[in-house]
Design a protein around this nucleic acid. Structure first.
Lengths: 213, 213
DNA sequence: GCCTGTGAAGGATTTCACAGCC
DNA sequence: GGCTGTGAAATCCTTCACAGGC
């Protein structure tokens, strides 16, 4: 029905949306694929092609209406609403996530947090009281949660992912350094700064050996 | 000379290396591309093809020697050595990064941290004393730093990136929610949980509208 | 018999290039 | 004249499939 939209395209849309929000904040009202492409190091053709999967949003000779396109993208992505997020793992990393102020303004509300450590359970982090991990399933049965954030040690991560999946959660943001398995109808994204650095070193090494300054 | 290796391939190698380290820790001595692929949700052919860019590491009929392949990958990626990292931005996020214990064991040593806020300058985080951002250039001139981590507010991020680039840094890990520009000989990776979530909502939305249970 | 390494085929994604519209 | 939307071409990446070695 919906002709299949490449995942790479979906992954770029939030980047476009962010740039458009920026332009809007700066008072810009129109932008061309050329100009947007320069902001984002993306070719204009790519932007136009990506958008063409969803409709025709531009005007020839003019470009795109910033507010209009932003609204469209927000709707397409579903970021025009509030999403309920739960956090599993409230160690150092989990606490930083809970207290990171960047999710709320984007519509991602952390509604619950869980941990196994009794020293942490009952504490207040980022506006919620930490519950015991044993209450996870009951909580998810009783409350709508759209996205799970996993911030537990690697050894626990797959089993936490499994519990989230079994409770019907369809989107998981995993900070644990493992490749977690999920069924095909569940979306998972991995945040792993170590992997990111480990791929960069390949290029540093190379630049040192060849054209070192 | 070195025939061009696709960046996607380079990005997968650290994942392979992590899985191999896992296998080694569990005492496994050999692994087939089949078995490794199952661990990582990757096709065996893809693993073999990826590795074939760098050499012939396996034995027909047997598979790969876990320790041997791991050592090779570590050498290829350059993660067999220590890398010197500096952190710019020691707000909440920056502090969490400085105190995150996951970098050191992987060979990424944070050797300096910088911030503009006088309340933070002089404080001790993650084993280093925070310096004033005005000392960044002098520090980079006097000390080898391989990788810069940017954890400043969006509004400051591009200018910090520029300063790192001008000081000759060839790899940047950017946590700020912007698309930063770098010259082609500089590698940059973006860590942005919000973008990750914003692409997942597209799929949640879809799964809700279609086969919702 | 099992599994690698790899050309060749297939598929996916990006870029080109231009008709059409403002 | 400037810029979108889009088929077609080009490029890039993945998968197939099998020869060859263990």
């Amino acid at each position: 029905m919906t002709l299949e939209i490449p995942e790479v395209v979906i992954n770029r849309l939030p980047v476009y949306a962010r740039a458009l929000a920026d332009l809007a904040a700066r008072g810009e009202t129109v932008v061309s694929s050329q100009a947007l492409g320069e902001m984002l190091d993306v070719t204009p053709a790519q932007i136009r092609k990506d958008l063409s999967y969803f409709g025709r949003f531009g005007k020839q000779g003019r470009g795109y209406n910033v507010q209009g396109l932003l609204a469209k993208l927000r709707e397409i992505l579903g970021i025009d609403r509030q999403w309920r997020v739960c956090l599993v793992g409230v160690g150092r990393l989990g606490q930083a996530i809970a207290e990171y102020g960047g999710f709320g303004p984007q519509g991602f509300q952390i509604v619950a947090a869980f941990d196994a450590n009794p020293d942490v359970v009952g504490k207040q982090v980022g506006g919620v009281t930490v519950r015991h991990i044993d209450d996870l399933d009951a909580y998810l049965r009783a409350n709508r949660v759209d996205i799970g954030i996993v911030a537990v040690p690697a050894s626990e991560a797959q089993s936490v992912v499994d519990r989230l999946v079994n409770a019907g959660i369809k989107a998981i943001l995993n900070y644990a350094p493992i490749t977690a398995h999920v069924p095909r109808d569940v979306t998972i994204r991995h945040i792993d700064p170590v992997l990111a650095m480990q791929s960069m070193t390949f290029y540093i090494k190379r630049s040192e050996s060849s054209g070192a300054k």
